[in-house]
Design a protein around this nucleic acid. Structure first.
Lengths: 111, 111
DNA sequence: GTTAAGCGCAACTCTCTGGTTGCACTTACT
DNA sequence: AGTAAGTGCAACCAGAGAGTTGCGCTTAAC
């Protein structure tokens, strides 16, 4: 059942749920494109409020997909690609595991 | 932006959202372990109603992660590991793409 | 032909979540 | 010192989602 350790403390639920939202993926994409950014800046190129962006970034942060760093009166957010890569690997491992099980079942059924 | 075609028509939102729910992952896991199963059977080993299970299976089906097949008065659901594997690959591609972009940014910043 | 098993549909409740607005607080600019 | 920019916090609202119950229909079993 315990298919391959999950990335950095964050639960699978959190990571997948974080990635499930289109706005959050867009935020991540934007951050990846620019390297980093503040909530205010990100909100300017989206049809939603800064507060909404802040909430999204909080979700992403809790999932370990972005990190934040305060500099004066600004808070800069940066993507954490390791978390994303780890999640991808974990998903791939799950897929492989299930594939093996299904092949096994199929093999047994053919006897 | 358009990082690698997404699996079989299903949108990223649908797949990720489907996987984000623990109950649905459990259902998938159960199906993978047994090969297939009906909603009634699956509901018996979960603390929820058959109807709830049916809804979950509908979500998984819409995401292309399970397929259903009617046989008489029973409907058998089977996992679709290809969908899962494709999703994992897609995620990995995304991670790689963002990683590249971040390296690029870092390189430019060092000039 | 009756009875039971399995499924589908619809209505309803409750909680979570994405989003908003308003205001107070801190940090920079002039 | 006074103003503007950027955050943070809290209350609030509307919609989506998980789950339930009740009922009617079809397919199997006796």
């Amino acid at each position: 059942m315990t298919a391959a350790g999950r990335p950095g403390g964050a639960r699978a639920d959190e990571i997948l749920a974080a990635l499930a939202d289109p706005t959050r993926r867009q935020l991540l994409s934007e951050l990846a494109a620019r390297g980093s950014g503040t909530a205010t800046r990100l909100a300017q190129q989206l049809p939603i409020t800064r507060q909404a962006v802040v909430k999204h970034l909080a979700v992403l942060s809790r999932a370990g997909l972005v990190s934040s760093h305060r500099d004066g009166r600004e808070v800069h957010y940066a993507p954490q690609p390791d978390g994303l890569a780890a999640t991808a690997q974990w998903l791939a491992a799950l897929a492989a595991e299930w594939d093996v099980r299904l092949r096994e079942i199929k093999r047994l059924a053919e006897d």
